[in-house]
Nucleic acid binder design. Structure first.
Lengths: 294, 294
DNA sequence: TAATCATCATAACCTCCTGTTATTGGGTAT
DNA sequence: ATACCCAATAACAGGAGGTTATGATGATTA
């Protein structure tokens, strides 16, 4: 197997017809070039150049392979341009995993900014449940997930915080009597509660709150999507456990946060990515845009 | 400038989607491949693979450059075939410098043998004066010269003897009285002499003979071509100085060798090639055929 | 569920490839 | 005649690119 670097030297020598000049172009010494050309000829088991006192000339066979080498090198040089297109964000695709809620309540506004700044980058959105998004992430299908951080961190993943939000119990005006008063956790037991299904960060968090405050309420409903959950709160089906971020735009209309003491926990959300993998430049820029235009 | 060997490794890894398998294919260790891929990604300043627990996958950018790499490597692999065609003598050209006399009297019979054995090799014959042929040789225009060896060897050239011949004085039947008797050099002074022009090996040799034997005969004619010289001998214009090789086929018809004591010198003829240059395989085979079918 | 296998990353180390400088020998140009 | 240009060679140095050993983690299998 021929070392491909030899062909690069071959090419320059063939072009300049002069080993000394080629060595200058290649930024190596003349004996180095002489040696490498000899090596190539030895390994191909045929002379390629005719040595004269004025320089070197390709022989017939050398001339033939020169065409191939030239084409090959051109193709390999093109790679620089391809890379450039990607690193300068002239092209590329970002594959993001994100829940519909976070999408609507957090990412949407940033997306447009990014798109305006880098109009050639395609953004693919994957909106499976977070658990599935993490699987997709680990299988290389998506570049990163934007999501709430779990209680226990996965050793294989990187967590880059973008913001915090607090879990809150939210009710609609059916429960207007709870407005403007402070409740204790125990008080919740009198009301129907709506929680997200297992497995989810939200449900884990709620259970954590129950345990901490020695209460245990069987939820009236278990709902997969936090989106849908909010709809049920709006309809007055019960008091729901969601993040403030998801409801803040709709508060004071027909929904309010139940004032509890102690309050449910605050959590972080942000970029979740693979530890072993380096971000592409477009992903880096995307994250940058999100962070700068907070 | 990216080391081209990295692309070979890149290619195999991309194909196998598995660094370990790629390392086996490449006959190097797995950490070596890991390191080289990392190096390539660093130098291109962009990730190319997504690492998963099952192996690695090309990312978008990697996929793009893969096409270029694949094409480039295909082109470079083709080189093996091109070289093979040349080393196996399926194609190629041999450029020989040779005098018309040597061509007719020596090489012609070998040429056909070579052509029968290697019908795809083109033989280009250059028939300038030997001096010019040597210049062409040094300028890389011809592969080798078949010619008489000079008295002093050029340090830059290789001399490979193919045969010997002797210089002789030849006369036609106009000088029938010289037939079957032995002459001394001094006796030649009574007859018109035809020599080859300067500069030529033949003339040098004649002068050498004169000096050695203390004679000095102004030639009746100076002729550039030995071919023509023989024609003049045939016509009886004088006694000519040529090699036995050039006249042996025509002796005993209307020409004979003048029996001199001491005889003119014996000389060698053969392949003259550039010391610094390796013979192509076709040239080697050509010389082989000449030597084996003596 | 435990054990084994597969995969990639890292560290420490070593070898030989690929460079270096110095020099020779010859041709070319002024 | 002199200075320059070009390729080949020798002796040597440094680091690229390999090695083995090991670790961490997920996938697979008994």
């Amino acid at each position: 197997m021929i070392n491909l670097e030899l062909y690069r030297i071959f090419y320059v020598v063939a072009e300049t017809k002069n080993i000394t000049k080629a060595s200058e172009k290649l930024c190596i010494s003349q004996p180095a070039v002489t040696k490498q050309i000899k090596k190539l000829e030895n390994e191909l088991n045929t002379p390629l150049f005719i040595r004269t006192k004025r320089g070197v000339i390709l022989n017939e066979c050398g001339e033939k392979i020169f065409n191939n080498v030239k084409q090959a090198l051109t193709l390999l040089e093109e790679i620089d341009n391809i890379i450039n297109d990607y690193t300068k964000l002239n092209t590329g695709t970002i594959k993001i995993g994100i829940s519909t809620s976070l999408m609507k309540k957090y990412l949407l506004k940033h997306l447009e900014k990014f798109h305006n700044k880098y109009p050639n980058i395609i953004v693919d959105i994957y909106t499976d449940p977070t658990k599935d998004l993490i699987t997709k992430l680990k299988n290389g299908i998506i570049d990163f997930v934007i999501g709430k951080f779990p209680i226990t961190f996965d050793k294989e993943l990187n967590y880059h915080e973008l913001g915090k939000t607090r879990y809150v119990f939210v009710a609609n005006n059916n429960y207007f009597n709870l407005k403007n008063i402070q409740l204790k956790p125990k008080d919740l037991e009198k009301y129907p509660i709506i929680l997200q299904e297992y497995p989810s960060n939200s449900r884990n968090s709620a259970e954590k709150y129950y345990e901490k405050n020695n209460i245990n309420i069987e939820p009236r409903m278990n709902i997969a999507s936090s989106n849908l959950l909010i709809d049920f709160i709006k309809l007055g089906y019960g008091i729901g456990y969601v993040t403030e971020l998801y409801v803040k735009d709709e508060l004071n209309k027909d929904m309010f946060i139940v004032n509890l003491n102690p309050k449910p926990e605050e959590i972080s959300f942000g970029i979740i990515s693979l530890k072993n993998n380096v971000m592409t430049n477009s992903c880096k820029k995307f994250i940058e845009v999100i962070k700068n235009n907070n």
